[in-house]
Design a binder for these strands. Structure first.
Lengths: 152, 152
DNA sequence: TATTGTTATACTCTATAACTATA
DNA sequence: TATAGTTATAGAGTATAACAATA
């Protein structure tokens, strides 16, 4: 019985506070993004795929992309179909292994992605102005830790 | 020319860091929740509606619920249809204004919601153990500020 | 007329299972 | 046989526009 009752209750209070704020954040983020992306005729899943693709220097295969975007490959096929049709990404057979496909952002896709991101940065700058430099660092560090522990 | 160049660049560095981490957080949260909820046969939108409903002490109308869950009413009709069918919520005519409907969680819905939340709390406790008490307060405060500034 | 909510429509996302082509 | 990826299918979410019922 080393943990005092009071300490345990304090932990639970924090758990509930963080649960509430993170669920709220998750849904607000998703809906806001959904609406902002509509202006660019993009869905949240398409945007996630584009971002994942940007993470690969030389493009990727379908299965690598699916994993990076947290989708199964059957789902990714449909998402990629629609992005290819709009010339936002390309999908080509790998000549060395003709089962595999090589996927990458087109120039048009890179420009579009940057445009969307720049729009989001406007809001972020408002937020950052409310924080001190040390609070900014702390924010990034704590979110990073959250990602590691909760989704890592 | 009061803002030194160096200071501006530091701000932009933070903007990019937070942009990256928040987009990552948003998508990871969404996909993780989607998968966790599948176990309960719930979708993320249904869960958001249930949470929004829980925020009203006495239930709400369809339009209040739609606004709280960040949906339009046509979309909310479908989401509520499926939750009513499973007896997770109830939807009844308001006798005082027969255009309006009164929606609220059933006992079964309350129990289910609590079960889902408790499952998520397990992960949160792991996260909180990694933080000091003051870091916990800071985390909640900064996320709250983010919600205010970015989505408020 | 204005408000509350639903219906019809079209498109996208999602998972599962079965399939094709290549290794 | 094993792997990479697609297709078929069924259900859910989403916005728009048109609609019905009530105020």
């Amino acid at each position: 019985m080393t943990a005092p009752l009071q300490e345990k209750n304090l932990l639970e209070t924090d758990v509930e506070a963080i649960e509430r704020v993170m669920l709220q954040l998750g849904w607000a983020t998703h809906r806001q993004l959904h609406q902002e992306l509509a202006e660019f005729n993009l869905t949240v899943s398409q945007f996630a795929a584009m971002r994942a693709l940007q993470g690969f220097d030389e493009g990727s295969t379908m299965s690598e992309l699916a994993e990076a975007a947290r989708q199964i490959s059957a789902t990714m096929t449909g998402i990629v179909d629609r992005l290819v049709e709009r010339e936002i990404i390309t999908r080509q057979r790998d000549p060395d292994d003709r089962r595999a496909l090589h996927v990458s952002l087109t120039e048009k896709g890179i420009v579009l992605l940057e445009k969307v991101k720049e729009k989001k940065r406007v809001r972020l700058r408002h937020f950052l102005k409310e924080l001190s430099p040390s609070e900014r660092k702390t924010f990034v560090r704590l979110i990073g830790k959250y990602l590691d522990v909760v989704y890592g």
